[in-house]
Amino acid sequence: MEKIFIVIAESLKSWGIDDYFIRQQNKGITIHHEKKNIFISINRASRTDHPVRWWIQTRSGEDKQELPCLSIIGLLGNLRDQFGIKSSTALRVISKLDDLS
């Protein structure tokens, strides 16, 4: 979960999310955003939950959700949704500048 922790922390920073507390626990990651009063817990799914890789549990006021994530893309997408961040413009990766023509 250490690599996932780094990806999540860097993503929150790049999305411009401030005033959050993130920590890594034994089997998961906890995020608390004070301004929006959102608590998010990310835990690795058990082998019996396959193909689910992580579970995101959210609590905002009285609203609670548990969301399955099949991939890192799904995990980050669910996090973006929780913070109300719209999808960004798609990027195309190219190998050479010559490919721009």
Score class of each variant (00 low, 15 high):
L70D: 08
P51S: 15
N78Y: 06
L91G: 07
R53L: 08
G77P: 02
I94H: 11
L97S: 14
A45Y: 00
I56T: 02
T30Q: 12
R53Q: 11
H32K: 13
T48K: 15
G61E: 08
Q57E: 04
S101I: 15
D81S: 07
I94Y: 12
T89P: 01
K35S: 11
Q57P: 01
F39P: 04
D81M: 06
S95R: 12
S71T: 15
T30E: 11
N26R: 08
V52C: 08
D81E: 12
Q65P: 00
G74S: 09
H32G: 03
H50Q: 13
I56M: 07
G61Y: 07
I17C: 06
S95Q: 13
A45L: 03
N43M: 00
I73E: 14
E62V: 07
Y20T: 11
L79H: 11
A45P: 03
Q57F: 00
Q57N: 04
F21R: 13
I42D: 04
S11P: 03
C69A: 11
Y20F: 15
W55K: 02
D98T: 12
I8Q: 07
L12A: 02
I73S: 11
A45C: 07
I94P: 04
R53D: 01
L12C: 05
I85W: 08
G74N: 13
Q82W: 00
A90D: 15
A9Y: 05
R47P: 09
R44N: 04
L76P: 06
D18W: 03
K27S: 10
D81L: 09
M1W: 03
L12M: 10
Q24D: 02
S46W: 13
R23Y: 00
R92C: 13
D19T: 08
Q25W: 00
L70F: 10
L76E: 10
E2R: 09
E10M: 06
P68W: 07
I22D: 06
L91V: 14
W15A: 00
R59F: 01
I22Q: 08
W55F: 02
I17V: 10
S14I: 00
I6K: 14
S71P: 05
R80C: 04
S14N: 04
I31H: 11
A9H: 10
E34T: 14
I56F: 01
